[in-house]
């Protein structure tokens, strides 16, 4: 029976897939490409870091300059990510929940920092707060340092990570519509309760997703931060800048040791991101399989 079915079954499948040799060669080419462009660079970071053994790696990571770079990187991310989180939620609420003129233009402006070169992003803050800049004389008179100091680094980081969370949330909240929130308001909930108990649970996966990507970029930003930092060792060096300095001083093991921490961060980011995606997909599937309570109109 099966022997007679097989040829027709195979012919039916042949319409929507390729012959086995095509499939395997396409998979082969794609995996080879990914091996050379993604796996090898990642592996190279760790092997270069451990080139002179674990002891040298360990010594490189215990340098006080490396520690102050790690510290500054975390402080920067700790300020920039919450700021953009609040902005992302507010912008998504305004854009997704209401209709108003100029909405499309506003959405484009929110995306703008993504397409601005990081170097230009750094430059604009130098032009604002640098010695030659708009507020330069006033800041100097009051002895406040923004550019070539920590506040400038934070500002530049906020700029380059500006759209991450808003961008995740806007399409998500648009797709979910207003029905549940309106029901909550009609039932007497305050605006804050509605957000906290109705909207937030619905957007939590998108929120986590946005925060993770925002954090990865905040900790890894190089170009913009490099323009505003002034590269003062132990003071205004973030981890990526420290990597550059060590690399240019031919301290290859030390440079790759700090880089390996950033690569680990990237791997953790990818892992969390994948888990979030899988859990979100599972939840969507679970709700899709629920029996409908009422036939929709």
């Amino acid at each position: 029976m099966s022997t007679t079915l097989n040829p027709s079954l195979r012919r039916a499948q042949a319409g929507t897939t390729e012959p086995a040799w095509v499939r395997y060669s396409l998979i082969g080419v794609a995996l080879t490409f990914m091996f050379f462009f993604l796996v090898l660079p990642l592996a190279a970071v760790f092997t270069e870091a451990l080139r002179k053994g674990f002891d040298a790696y360990w010594v490189a990571l215990q340098e006080p300059d490396a520690w102050s770079a790690i510290y500054l990187t975390f402080v920067t991310a700790l300020i920039a990510v919450p700021l953009n989180l609040v902005f992302g939620v507010a912008a998504a609420w305004a854009i997704a929940k209401y209709e108003f003129t100029g909405k499309a233009f506003l959405t484009t402006l929110v995306d703008l920092p993504f397409s601005v070169s990081p170097v230009v992003a750094g430059l604009i803050y130098v032009l604002m707060f640098g010695a030659q800049g708009w507020f330069g004389p006033w800041l100097q008179a009051h002895d406040i340092k923004i550019v070539f100091a920590v506040p400038g680094i934070v500002l530049a980081t906020v700029f380059v990570t500006f759209p991450f969370i808003a961008r995740e949330l806007i399409p998500l909240m648009q797709a979910q519509g207003n029905d549940e929130e309106q029901a909550a308001i009609v039932l007497g909930a305050t605006g804050w309760q509605t957000f906290w108990y109705v909207t937030l649970p619905n957007i939590k996966w998108g929120l986590i997703y946005g925060v993770i990507l925002c954090n990865a970029r905040a900790m890894g930003e190089f170009g913009a931060v490099s323009v505003v930092s002034g590269h003062i060792r132990g003071q205004t060096n973030t981890m990526p800048l420290h990597v550059e300095i060590l690399y240019n001083e031919y301290q290859s093991v030390a440079a790759f040791a700090v880089a390996s921490l950033l690569a680990l961060l990237a791997l953790v980011t990818l892992a969390i991101k994948s888990v979030v995606e899988w859990r979100h997909a599972r939840e969507l599937k679970a709700t899709a399989e629920l029996p409908q309570e009422m036939p929709s109109a």
Binding site: L38, L42, R217, A263, L270, K273, S274
Partner: peptide, 18 residues
Amino acid sequence: DALVDLPFALPTAVAGIS
């Protein structure tokens, strides 16, 4: 599939030296 996003997650300076 997860690895495809590596260039988004890996800091550019690290990618550069690697």
